[in-house]
């Protein structure tokens, strides 16, 4: 009696999770790139994206999650987001402006330059937050009880 019950237990949650997680990640992307127009932005999108992966990890186990996003990837992404943010600043210096002065990113229309700058900076924030939250989850969930 015990075994089939466990099987069924697995099924309901897994099916629902499989249905939900793609939409959660899609929603995270929406929040990320729609942040200029509605509530949202890099911080929120990063946390939601990480929450989607954490849900996967909770339901399917940490080992499976590590196969999807390896620990090494996380470590690289934590730094990559911050570097992307800094690189936008350096790029604006290279294009003749001040640090993080996005207007120079588009020579024809400063408003577009501002939009590009915000887009990339938010993307950097989003990547760092996602990776940092996942790294923290890995660290806590992957540890055996002392």
């Amino acid at each position: 009696m015990k075994t089939p019950m466990r099987m069924r237990e697995k099924i309901v949650l897994r099916v629902v999770a499989q249905a939900c997680i793609p939409f959660i990640l899609l929603f995270a992307l929406y929040v990320q790139f729609h942040g200029d127009f509605g509530p949202g932005g890099g911080f929120q999108a990063g946390v939601i994206c990480a929450a989607g992966f954490i849900l996967y990890g909770l339901i399917f186990g940490l080992d499976k999650l590590k196969k999807v996003v390896s620990f090494r990837t996380i470590e690289i992404l934590v730094a990559a987001g911050l570097l992307l943010y800094g690189a936008v600043g350096l790029l604006t210096i290279g294009m003749g402006g001040n640090y993080l002065d996005y207007k120079v990113l588009d020579h024809h229309d400063p408003t577009h330059g501002l939009h590009y700058g915000i887009l990339f900076v938010e993307l950097g924030v989003g990547i760092t937050v996602t990776a940092a939250m996942l790294a923290i989850f890995y660290a806590f969930a992957g540890r055996e009880r002392a």
Binding site: R6, E9, K10, L13, G57, L62, F140, R143
Partner: peptide, 13 residues
Amino acid sequence: FGSLGRDDHRGLL
């Protein structure tokens, strides 16, 4: 289960 990361085929929730 008292743990968050494990899924050692003990059944999920």
